[in-house]
């Protein structure tokens, strides 16, 4: 490991804004040691998220997207470079940052209500207010009525929405989404994407989502970061200058999708060309 600490060219923290949740990543590199040899997975990542922004990251498998999120959330602190949230260097996990994984990771032995409530255990929110906050967030993800259900009684989409409620209940400044819809079937996926957009518009915390679905990245993101693998680097940043809520069949999204797919694969995928314009919204 070459964990040399160098003086990073991060600009001084921006003046306090009305909303917090500014993420600054500078010169971030990370490598794993395999058979005694360092294997770089992330190399020279520089990225800034504005408060309240929705940013998507797309890229092929092995481009270090999920590793990046583990670093930001604080589960892995062995890296070089800087990650700061509102100017504060990230050293461990914190209730400032929530995360939703591809597998919902609800505890199977707890009801939906208990699963959401456990996020509040170590907050200073008074005990008598917690039940209300939990109920509000269950309502936010449209799961009212399922408070007493165990995870095995929920469908995949419901469980994933419950996981989103758990991640949001602490009102984190930054929500990380690690392929949150990757395990869902195509129809459920479209539905939860709409839900996610609605939730984000209601909540307005900063969100950073990793996905390998380019359409999903464009539909939700204010910006889309395209990453290349081995080691993971930022290849391109695409601005999506469309207001929310968005129309899935917008020609702008269509054009950007072809561009990014060309970037990632070398040529637009004909299968996608046929399917996309025909996609209908419920």
């Amino acid at each position: 490991m070459t964990a040399q600490s160098r003086i990073s060219p991060t600009p001084p923290p921006a003046a306090p804004r009305s909303a917090s949740g500014a993420l600054t990543i500078s010169s971030l590199s990370k490598s794993f040691t395999i058979d005694g040899k360092p294997l770089p997975v992330l190399d020279g990542i520089d990225l800034t998220l504005r408060p309240g922004e929705f940013v998507s990251i797309v890229g092929a498998s092995g481009c270090g997207k999920s590793t990046l999120l583990r670093l930001i959330v604080g589960l892995d602190t062995d890296y070089s470079g800087e990650i700061r949230l509102d100017g504060q260097r990230i050293a461990t996990t914190s209730l400032d940052r929530g995360i939703v994984f591809q597998d919902h990771r609800l505890f199977p032995w707890m009801t939906l209500e208990e699963n959401v409530g456990l996020a509040l255990l170590n907050t200073d929110i008074p005990k008598d207010r917690r039940a209300q906050i939990v109920a509000d967030h269950i309502a936010l993800v449209n799961l009212s009525g399922f408070e007493k259900a165990y995870p095995h009684q929920l469908s995949g989409g419901m469980a994933q929405r419950a996981a989103i409620a758990r991640a949001l209940v602490t009102e984190p400044k930054l929500l990380l989404l690690d392929e949150p819809l990757g395990a869902l079937d195509a129809l459920t996926r479209v539905h939860v994407q709409k839900e996610l957009q609605r939730i984000w518009m209601a909540q307005r915390s900063t969100m950073l989502m990793v996905t390998h679905d380019v359409e999903e990245a464009l539909y939700l993101g204010d910006r889309v970061i395209v990453m290349s693998p081995n080691p993971g680097r930022i290849r391109r940043i695409v601005e999506v200058d469309l207001p929310h809520p968005r129309d899935r069949s917008s020609p702008v999204l269509h054009r950007l999708r072809d561009e990014i797919l060309t970037e990632l694969t070398g040529a637009p995928d004909p299968a996608n060309l046929v399917r996309f314009p025909g996609t209908e919204e419920r």
Binding site: V73, G74, L75, T93, S94, L95, G98, I99, F101, D103, R105, F107, W109, M110, L118, A119, L121, N122, T170
Partner: peptide, 27 residues
């Protein structure tokens, strides 16, 4: 480990980790 990660994210104390994750998962 993925369940233990959840405990780390929500800042579980070692007592909470034991009572809310290890024990029920091992039950």
């Amino acid at each position: 480990k993925r369940y233990l990660d959840v405990g780390r994210i929500y800042g579980f104390t070692s007592v909470q980790r034991f009572r809310l994750i290890l024990l029920p998962a091992a039950l």
